[in-house]
């Protein structure tokens, strides 16, 4: 499945990675070769094979509904780039 310049830009946008045109061109080349390698998968007949999401056939364990966490806002916000009045600040979001 051939990769195009627009695919790289689209992925970069979805992943919120700033790329300029020349970087995009560079990644297009790399990603194209990686996908070419990955495309070997298409040659394998997997009819009737169930996808495997986890290596062990384990099932989800459930947690009792208990409040176990206490307020650690100050600790957590010490590593935050911008906070005010306990809120994380980001550039204005327009709805």
């Amino acid at each position: 499945m051939a990769l195009e310049h627009a695919d790289v830009l689209r992925a970069a946008h979805l992943a919120r990675l700033g790329l300029d045109e020349s970087e995009a061109a560079h990644y297009l080349d790399d990603l194209g070769r990686i996908l070419e390698m990955v495309d070997q998968l298409q040659g394998l007949d997997t009819e009737g094979v169930a996808p495997l999401a986890h290596p062990l056939d384990a099932t989800q364990r459930l947690r009792a509904d208990e409040v176990t966490e206490t307020d650690q806002r100050d600790t957590f916000q010490r590593c935050a780039p911008a906070v005010e009045n306990g809120l994380y600040l980001v550039p204005r979001v327009v709805e």
Binding site: E84, N85, G86, Y88, L89, V90, P91, R92, V93
Partner: peptide, 15 residues
């Protein structure tokens, strides 16, 4: 929740 009242033109995030 995003709080849009004025934080110097910023939005405040309450999680």
């Amino acid at each position: 929740k995003s709080l849009h009242e004025d934080f110097h033109g910023m939005t405040g995030i309450d999680l």
